[in-house]
Design a protein around this nucleic acid. Structure first.
Lengths: 337, 337
DNA sequence: GTTAGCACTCAAAGGCGTTGAGTGCTAAAA
DNA sequence: TTTTAGCACTCAACGCCTTTGAGTGCTAAC
């Protein structure tokens, strides 16, 4: 598609721009990256690259900056993948394993770590309950008619909710209910818990089964925004593209809209995905890119995480970091068995 | 201390400055607040107020702005307390009661509501476990040697933690342990749970009592920053004092330091407290004021909440809002009995 | 004690020329 | 045919200057 020299020029422009955040001129490239040709030649190449849409010019007497298309080509074909030393890998692992007993905390820590390593804003989408397996259900009396529903789900997720019941239950009744529910639910996923199983419970336990189902369903309900954790929001204020407060505000406000991320970090594909600029964005967030990956338990995708930053970001490093955290997280969760 | 006219001038300056964020001149005051005297007279009064430290002048040909001392006097003696209509009170109440079944969620919602009503950054410090009363302890098997410790504390706080044990326990053993713990703990506060009670448990249950204590203590341990909830950080970006990104960054970064707020929102006094500017601040946060209050259960203080904003804030409104949320929260928590 | 008048100060805004990084084009060199 | 030196041109950024106007303090008259 692009001949060798054009590729090298494009790569030089992009890497220089990523580093300096300033439009890059032909002279600079000729000096920094020994391409063996004069600035004039590079100028010609850059003019071609602009014509074909890989570069842009903020104004006529400025250097070039990469377009979304340019970044896309860079990410797909030009950038040199970054790799870690065993030592770095170990550090991440040992940082994360500290919190590994409980999944919710583990993924929160994974997010914080990702934010800190990338110096970007990080997002982690926790597994929706549908993806998890029942391990234990416990009903605990709170009050005359309030019951605490504790759900232990695999891999080590604890959900609890206090639910108001239609009528009062004694301690003994609740224990009975708990035992019954555990019998029916142990080992099945929420997904399997269609109307069939629910009807089965009602059938088997009669009126009391109805109550079980009621408690269970209400115990499981949770708000969407509790599934998204964010960290490192303030890091983006270090980026020159956000030196204008209005832009920073727009970004931060959009970033806080947690539902937004539920949609953006879809769980379709495997591996690290990069979404550049306008490729996929909610209009509120201008000139930003997203690097995301999914994490899984035993090959089964259960959630996703990623970082957001200006389109001018160190893609190689970001992709490597997201990959590293996602795979370490998957490893730990799979070991939780 | 200040004669009547000086007070009126000071008040006029402060209220104008709060509204406009611009230094206030003598002419403006003469025009807006009919004090019945000419700008020249007001100038004289302002010169006096500056000499006694209530006002400051950014530069010689600008108007005056209030000093910390000026704000302090305004808050203590000049401002007109704001009050709410029954309708507004009801709205807040009905917004909060939606989430009142669980305390953690309730106080989070209180924080969000406070942030939204004041358009400021809000902080809520959750009650430390020491302030709460045991209601139920449940040990649930997770894995061979992992036990889920669920603590239900009054008023309706649920804590859970997965703890690794020295040796394996069967389901039956865990139930037995739970029952034993419940017997000893029901109704007592963590505070009462000194070495005495712990030793009592060990004495009564022998070796198994040791395990109980171990599980309990570890189940109760939690990180400091989990006790602080913040909301509405981005609101402060609307304030002109943060139009400079560096200042905004400094603020937001300090604001994210959750431990900081544990110290700042001490639980000493009753009622709403106002801390202005340098009166009490960590050096990172410049030119900010803090409006805080405690909330309580049946007269017993268990936590605190408040807002942070630029020293130039609508004190009357902020104080009223913080008061409103704190008292509504206290009311709901007390009703949780 | 109050106020009109006046000279004075100074930040903010606007105009203006300079600078310099960068371009595209042309014509010569390879 | 491709590369490059040379050159005229563009334009944001910067510094410098002037103007403007909001505001002051002082003085003298009311």
């Amino acid at each position: 598609m692009l001949d060798d020299r054009k590729s090298r020029v494009l790569r030089a422009v992009i890497e220089d721009y990523i580093e300096t955040a300033e439009p890059v001129g032909s002279r600079t490239i000729a000096r920094k990256h020994r391409l063996g040709v004069s600035p004039a030649t590079i100028r010609n190449e850059m003019a071609d690259l602009e014509e074909t849409g890989y570069l842009e010019q903020p104004h006529v007497s400025a250097g070039r900056i990469p377009s979304d298309k340019g970044y896309r080509f860079y990410v797909d074909a030009l950038m040199e993948p970054m790799s870690f030393t065993l030592e770095q890998y170990r550090q991440v692992y040992s940082e994360m394993i500290k919190h590994y007993r409980e999944m919710e905390r583990l993924i929160q820590e994974a997010g914080k770590l990702l934010a800190s390593l990338t110096q970007s804003a990080a997002i982690v989408v926790a597994p929706p309950i549908e993806q998890l397996t029942f391990q234990h259900v416990q009903l605990i009396p709170v009050d005359e008619r309030d019951v605490l529903v504790v759900l232990l789900l695999h891999p080590n997720v604890v959900k609890n909710k206090i639910v108001r019941t239609e009528r009062a239950f004694s301690s003994a009744e609740l224990i009975q209910l708990s035992v019954g529910l555990n019998q029916k639910l142990k080992g099945i996923t929420y997904r399997d818990l269609g109307p069939t199983v629910l009807r089965e419970i009602v059938g088997e336990f009669g009126e009391i089964g109805q109550v079980m189902v009621e408690l269970l369903v209400r115990g499981l309900s949770s708000e969407k925004d509790e599934q998204v954790y964010s960290s490192g929001m303030t890091h983006i204020l270090n980026q020159p593209e956000f030196k204008d407060v209005e832009k920073a505000k727009a970004f931060l406000e959009a970033f806080e809209q947690k539902e937004l991320w539920l949609n953006l970090l879809g769980e379709d594909s495997q591996g690290v995905r990069v979404k550049i600029g306008k490729e996929n964005f909610h209009s509120d967030i201008q000139d930003c890119s997203l690097v995301t990956a999914t994490y899984h338990v035993g090959g089964h995708v259960i959630g996703s995480l990623g970082i957001v930053g200006p389109t001018r970001m160190e893609y190689a490093r970001m992709v490597a970091m997201v990959e590293l955290i996602a795979s370490t997280l998957s490893e730990l969760l799979t070991d939780m068995k």
